[in-house]
């Protein structure tokens, strides 16, 4: 009994394999688009900005004259901003993740909270800016301070860290958990001494990646009204400040050509900071992630 007509198959096989090969090549090209864009972006930026990346540039305040403008205030401001955003975001997100994974009862409220968090992750950053402008800047009268902007960014990146932390906590095997309970540990002892330490590399990776998103975020800062020409650095969280991405945005809008080189130089600094943060995250992920 001949079920498959061999000749028929052989006849069409060449064409089918050719199609397979050519489509594979096309898919490979799609994959390479990202690489090509990344290389173009970096080369273009470095060529434009390299010559302006001087010590003076790093240590001067912003200025309307391109030859004396620098990025010092913006860097310090961004550091202040992260100093507020990071602790607030970490406490909120890790607390939420612990509650959802370890304590929350399986009911409608928990379900609602989970859905709500994934929806918050999809809210555009500019809408978070409007929230910050109305609640923190106006109603709590914080003005365009480090605190107002930091809280806004913390709320914005919270969903990202929560999801990462939840995954890290879920990856701790139940055998470890049960062993702890079996030894007579209470719930919190198990959570704080067994589960958190085991999940911490994953959580920290999530935190660093989220913070590297926050440090480059511009839209909420524009909406809050972060200034672009200040000649002082903040002395406390209630002072106003400059920020790195805001400075870049301000320069790119300038009509004078000289500012385009400053923009590129600013971007190099921002990308270097991001690269550093990402390297740390990858290092922690590879070095400390435990396999059970």
């Amino acid at each position: 009994m001949q079920l498959v007509d061999k000749d028929q198959v052989a006849k069409s096989l060449g064409g089918r394999q050719l199609l397979n090969k050519s489509m594979k090549f096309l898919f490979l090209l799609c994959t390479l688009v990202g690489l090509v864009v990344l290389v173009t972006l970096i080369v273009d930026t470095v060529l434009d900005g390299w010559s302006h990346l001087t010590w003076d540039f790093l240590t001067s305040f912003s200025s309307s004259r391109p030859e004396s403008a620098g990025i010092y205030g913006a860097i310090i401001g961004s550091v202040w901003l992260m100093a507020v955003t990071a602790p607030v975001a970490i406490v909120l997100s890790v607390g939420t993740a612990l509650y959802l994974e370890e304590y929350a009862p399986k009911n409608r409220i928990t379900n609602f909270i989970t859905v709500n968090i994934s929806n918050l992750a999809g809210v555009p950053s500019v809408v978070f800016g409007l929230l910050g402008l109305t609640i923190f800047v106006r109603q709590l009268s914080l003005g365009n301070s480090v605190l107002a902007a930091g809280l806004t960014l913390a709320l914005m990146i919270m969903p990202v860290i929560v999801v990462a932390a939840q995954e890290a906590i879920r990856a701790v095997p139940s055998s470890v958990r049960e062993a702890s309970t079996g030894m007579g540990a209470t719930k919190w002892q198990t959570v704080s001494r067994i589960i958190l330490p085991a999940a911490i590399p994953g959580i920290i990776t999530g935190i660093i990646l989220a913070l590297s998103r926050a440090i480059g975020e511009t839209a909420p800062l524009v909406v809050i009204g972060v200034p672009v020409s200040l000649l002082v650095t903040p002395n406390g969280v209630f002072d106003t400040f400059q920020a790195l991405p805001m400075q870049i945005y301000n320069w790119v809008k300038m009509p004078q050509e000289e500012f385009q080189y400053l923009t590129a130089a600013g971007i190099i600094i921002l990308l270097l900071i991001l690269f550093l943060m990402n390297s740390v995250a990858i290092y922690i992920r590879n070095k400390y992630s435990k396999r059970f």
Binding site: L41, G216, P245, Y249, V252, A264, L270, L271, L274
Partner: peptide
């Protein structure tokens, strides 16, 4: 090799993409 490149691309701030759009 490719996945980290995609991750880097996803982490580039939008203000940088905007500059790339207008200058390149």
């Amino acid at each position: 090799i490719v996945k980290p490149i995609l991750e880097i691309l996803a982490g580039i701030p939008t203000v940088v993409y905007g500059t790339f759009a207008i200058t390149f």
